[in-house]
């Protein structure tokens, strides 16, 4: 029973930052911008939040500042790719490296420092349920917010004008411009939103789950986020499923290691990544679904006609 509680709890904690950042990246990609600097943005968000919490003890201020810090970096990226017509892949990589470097620099005085974990918010009644109570309903608020945001975004894409405009921009910026929308504004806001979410995800890691800062804290999660959006075929509900699956795989391999099975630990550590690749490959076989949801203009430079 203890084990199951541990697995459930570990899964949602591992999945939450991935889901939050992936939902942000989903919005950016749906509008047609491939943001490969998520890793750097998460690092910057993590260190900013950590510094705020270390100095003020205000966790929500930390989350907010973490989001804003990453959003500023996203604004830089957006200016480069939208207004200076930079290549999205190259610019994304460069801005990501910049973000990682800035995080290391700012965080230098705090290297290996710790903070007390963000206080959890046990949900009344539910948190007293056996096994799942401690496993699912005794966490910080962000853990519950992540799936709620996923549902909200699913609904926005499906049923609102905002979602429709975002999808239209990603499918064909030229057409969207022709029918009278400002493509660059839509994309700019989407990228900012993506940056804000990546910052919050980073903050979650540094002040709620790891509760420490060290360089390299994000450890490739930013890349998993980018993969998750593809894995989810650009649909919020599938992205969420992917995030929790990846979280479960992460915890699963820890569990197997702790039981002491005779498998090299490096192999086990790579399981979540391999699982993600296999899942992406399998899901990509349904071309029609991909075509209906994939933003066709993703990664393409859009030059406005005058």
């Amino acid at each position: 029973m203890e084990t199951l509680t541990f697995v459930l709890s570990g899964t949602v904690i591992a999945a939450t930052p991935l889901l939050i950042a992936a939902l942000g990246e989903l919005a950016a990609e749906k509008s047609g911008v491939l943001n490969l600097s998520i890793e750097g943005m998460m690092s910057l968000g993590a260190v900013a939040a950590f510094i705020v919490v270390k100095n003020t003890g205000d966790y929500w201020l930390g989350v907010f500042i973490g989001g804003v810090a990453a959003m500023l970096l996203a604004a830089l990226f957006a200016v480069i790719v939208l207004f200076l017509l930079g290549n999205q892949v190259a610019s994304g990589l460069a801005v990501g490296i910049l973000g990682g470097g800035m995080a290391a620099l700012i965080g230098k005085p705090y290297e290996s420092a710790t903070v007390p974990p963000m206080p959890s918010f046990p949900i009344p009644i539910l948190s007293h349920a056996p096994v799942i109570g401690r496993g699912l309903f005794d966490h910080v608020l962000l853990v519950y917010m992540a799936p709620a945001i996923a549902v909200l975004m699913w609904w926005i894409f499906k049923s609102t004008k905002v979602g429709l405009v975002l999808r239209a921009t990603g499918e064909s910026p030229e057409t969207t411009h022709a029918i009278g929308y400002n493509v660059l504004v839509v994309r700019f806001l989407s990228v900012l939103f993506g940056g804000f979410m990546a910052g919050i995800a980073g903050a979650f890691i540094s002040i709620a789950s790891a509760t420490l800062w060290s360089d390299g804290l994000i450890a490739g999660r930013g890349w998993i986020v980018v993969a998750l959006v593809v894995f989810g075929a650009w649909r919020a509900e599938r992205v969420a499923l992917g995030a929790y699956l990846f979280g479960a795989a992460t915890i699963g391999q820890l569990l197997v290691q702790s039981i002491g099975v005779e498998v090299p630990s490096q192999l086990l550590t790579s399981v979540p990544y391999i699982a993600t690749i296999v899942a992406i490959a399998l899901l990509s076989m349904d071309g029609k679904r991909i075509r209906l949801n994939a933003p066709v203009s993703l990664g393409r430079v859009y030059r406005e006609a005058h």
Partner: peptide, 15 residues
């Protein structure tokens, strides 16, 4: 100027 992955009504609502 129609978006292929949207429905007729969705396309029209954009304008």
């Amino acid at each position: 100027s129609l978006l292929e992955s949207l429905t007729v009504a969705e396309n029209i609502s954009l304008t």
